[in-house]
Design a protein around this nucleic acid. Structure first.
Lengths: 146, 146
DNA sequence: TTAACTGCAAATCCTTTGCAAAGGC
DNA sequence: GCCTTTGCAAAGGATTTGCAGTTAA
């Protein structure tokens, strides 16, 4: 499965004159392994032998190539996920900053409406629901009980 | 209209032991005047006599009081809007970073679904459509034509 | 071979903070 | 008068960049 993702990636990069370096392979494998929505720091913690500047530079490259999506929500720290994920939206905890996926049919209609109303050329859309995760709900209750 | 917003705000702040300072009034008036989705820099440009640290601190306060909403999308520079706006979603230009509102009925159902699937306590949701604004579409065409 | 890439260190950008002075209430 | 707030300057944290050495193709 990870191998499949990589196999698709190689010609994609080569067509653009970009190289398959061990660093690039490792960064993508690490994101695949971590599964959730890792930060640059999360990725670097897994592969500390790779310079953090290289991780930043490649993450930026992958976002511009639409291989990754940036989730810039939590407190100035961006998180990242693979772009070719099945339909889902995000729910964020306002207390701990956790991001969780939930399945929901893609709201394709909204893109059509947006195009008609704004004359933008549309690429994609994202949705975030804000709330408190179960763990942080309990912590709030404990504090109130003091 | 601006006066109305301010009149509501005064008791809201006082109840919480917070003060109505000229700086706070000016920052909110400036956001009302700018209308769109100003950055801290945009606000400071309008009222340079107020220290940028004070602007940052008060914006942060207003966000925590849910008077303002933070839009953390463009390239590490947050934009802000008043929280009590009528139903709308955002469309963002991937080239120039412009944020534009478009009207669409609030997707209340998605909050219910999210709650059931995740057990989060839900506060709100936001949606962003990504694309190219008409101006940037034209610029791309011009470049391609060279 | 050579153009792209890595990694270090320095620079940059945005934001927060410590603290003394000012000022709402 | 008390306690919050302001504003400066310094600190902090995340990200980008310049550049010399390295390496994929």
């Amino acid at each position: 499965m990870q191998k499949e993702q990589m196999t698709k990636l190689i010609p994609f990069l080569k067509e653009r004159g970009l190289r398959i370096t061990p660093q690039r392979t490792l960064i993508l494998q690490t994101i695949l392994t971590l599964k959730g929505h890792p930060t640059v720091e999360d990725i670097h913690r897994q592969i500390p032998q790779i310079s953090i500047a290289t991780i930043y530079n490649n993450i930026k490259l992958f976002v511009s190539l639409r291989i990754l999506k940036e989730l810039p929500y939590g407190n100035g720290l961006s998180k990242y996920e693979l772009a070719n994920q099945p339909n889902h939206y995000h729910i964020l905890c306002e207390s701990c900053g956790d991001i969780f996926d939930f399945n929901y049919p893609t709201l394709t209609q909204i893109e059509h409406v947006a195009r008609k109303l704004t004359q933008y050329q549309i690429f994609s859309h994202q949705m975030e629901v804000y709330g408190l995760c179960p763990t942080c709900q309990n912590e709030t209750k404990v504090k109130e009980g003091d």
